[in-house]
Design a binder for these strands. Structure first.
Length: 262
DNA sequence: GATGACCTGTGA
DNA sequence: TCACAGGTCATC
């Protein structure tokens, strides 16, 4: 997604405008979008008559709790999804996703008794709606990540540091852009074995992650990092001007500075 | 763990 | 036409 910052923006919109409204119907023209065995029939049997009472998030995964022991509705935005409540879309426009507004991109919607609706718009269809998902498949949330959590996440693997940070069952929420930015700010080579960090490096990485999330959160999203402007073939490090390296790490395109990220 | 698959849109 | 995209999953 939309990484953790966009998911949090979506959660806020849900919290502010999707709670305590009676649900009257469910629209899911795209059966593909329902995952974990969920069917349109089941969703229509389970949701109408209920209200959402809480909007939660763990990493990039959103959860809506319902009253009267209804299901927990899980929403995932995939690579291009956005939450739209009534006419208001959550968060900033996505960089690599179109911000056009085609009818057929609306994959799922919950209609409220007042006539409003909560919808998911997702051109690429990589998002998902799931009921009662196993939330513990995700690691600790990156926005409240403690140093102890970070140590536990990285200390047991010699996989590339970046791959470990992006592994959602170890730490939930860090995606490609945020991870590159945090490693750049903390001056870490993304390909370093995760378990090679000593105590002071772990503390430095922890600070870098926190600073990255706080700063980019204030600026308005995962795409507002300092490294972002140089994220193109031939880009130069905004810190020291060295040519950035572009390389696949953990299966994702990675930009880093071979000069200061060691 | 690395790889390719999933799906669609965009821009070169 | 091709490569690429802020994510995740199955599979080797």
């Amino acid at each position: 997604m939309p990484e953790i910052l966009e998911a949090e923006a979506a959660r806020l919109v849900l919290e502010e405008s999707a709670l305590k409204r009676k649900i009257v119907s469910v629209e899911a023209t795209d059966a593909w979008y329902l995952k974990g065995g969920l069917t349109l029939r089941a969703a229509r049997a389970a949701l109408p008559g209920h209200k959402f009472i809480r909007a939660r998030r763990r990493g990039k995964q959103l959860f809506l709790d319902t009253n009267l022991s209804g299901p927990v509705v899980g929403l995932h935005l995939g690579m291009s999804g956005r939450v739209v409540v009534d006419r208001k879309a959550a968060g900033d426009p996505l960089l690599y996703a179109s911000n056009r507004d085609a009818k057929e991109w609306y994959r799922f919607a919950v209609v409220f008794a007042d006539g409003g609706r909560l919808a998911l718009r997702d051109p690429r269809r990589l998002g998902a709606v799931v009921f009662d998902a196993d939330e513990d498949r995700l690691g600790p949330d990156a926005l409240s990540l403690g140093l102890v959590d970070l140590r536990a996440a990285v200390s047991k693997s010699r996989a590339p540091l970046k791959a470990v940070l992006m592994d959602q069952k170890r730490i939930a929420g860090l995606g490609n852009l945020l991870t590159d930015e945090a490693l750049w700010r903390g001056a870490f080579d993304p390909t370093r074995p995760a378990n090679s960090l000593d105590a002071s490096e772990l503390a430095r990485l922890h600070r870098a992650i926190r600073t990255t999330l706080r700063t980019l959160g204030r600026r308005g999203g995962s795409h507002t990092g300092d490294l972002m402007v140089a994220r193109l073939p031939g880009g130069a490090c905004p810190l020291d001007g060295a040519p950035l390296r572009r390389q696949k790490v953990g299966g994702r395109t990675t930009y880093f500075c071979p000069q200061h990220q060691i």
